[in-house]
Design a protein around this nucleic acid. Structure first.
Lengths: 115, 115
DNA sequence: TCAATATATCAACCATCGTTGAAACGTAGA
DNA sequence: TCTACGTTTCAACGATGGTTGATATATTGA
């Protein structure tokens, strides 16, 4: 269960244009992930810069990596993203369903059908 | 509907210890809100510092304010918080229900019952 | 072993952020 | 109108963040 410290780190990680794009790209890419080079091209940043942001993202647990040949494959950390959403809803809406109920309602069709 | 730019600003706003606490405090306080002075004491920051963070928060739309006598009352912007959750789930899980389904499932009891 | 590929690290720079104390502003009551 | 109160603005600072180009590390194939 995510605590405040982790949540702050995760939000800070997502609060940067390039990093948010990286995470979204990786989520779209799915569990099989994406090589760093491809990511750099997709997001539009230099290799050095991508490396910097990926380090931040993996330090805050939103991204994982594995080596595959010469490439390093990054993937979204689905469980951690899920926990972040839970934190935002559970602890931010603290007994105030009016915050997250609309979000849940709007996305019920999208997300619960395959749960 | 929240776009990428707004989402980055909102995440960046939440990615700071004191600001996350402010938002959580305001959500707990409910729609009636909370005076700046009370907030400063509750969160544990100086008046000047609180002012700085509140400016950031209202600039990214997570907080609203109104004057009431000598006090200025701040409240959480529930619709915007809700949209942020939607953004994180809708666009981050882009066709990948495994990201948000667990969150939705875990919180269905908490948040959908009064929807 | 050598060259080529893929990625990470390093050093440096400029910009932005978070904090502080002092001062200013707006409001209410005597 | 004067004074007290609540909050914001301002100027300054040290610290952190994002970017860049050059260099280093690991892996593969000839």
């Amino acid at each position: 269960m995510m605590d405040e410290r982790q949540a702050v780190a995760a939000f800070a990680a997502l609060g940067q244009e390039h990093r948010l794009r990286i995470v979204r790209q990786l989520v779209t890419a799915g569990p099989e992930g994406m090589a760093a080079g491809m990511l750099a091209e997709a997001v539009g940043v230099s290799g050095t810069n991508l490396s910097f942001h990926l380090k931040e993202l993996s330090h805050s647990g939103l991204v994982t990596s594995r080596r595959e040949g010469r490439s390093i494959i990054y993937s979204a950390a689905y469980p951690d993203l899920s926990e972040l959403i839970q934190f935002l809803m559970r602890d931010c809406c603290q007994g105030r369903p009016e915050v997250c109920a609309p979000a849940v309602a709007a996305l019920a069709a999208c997300c619960t059908e395959t749960a």
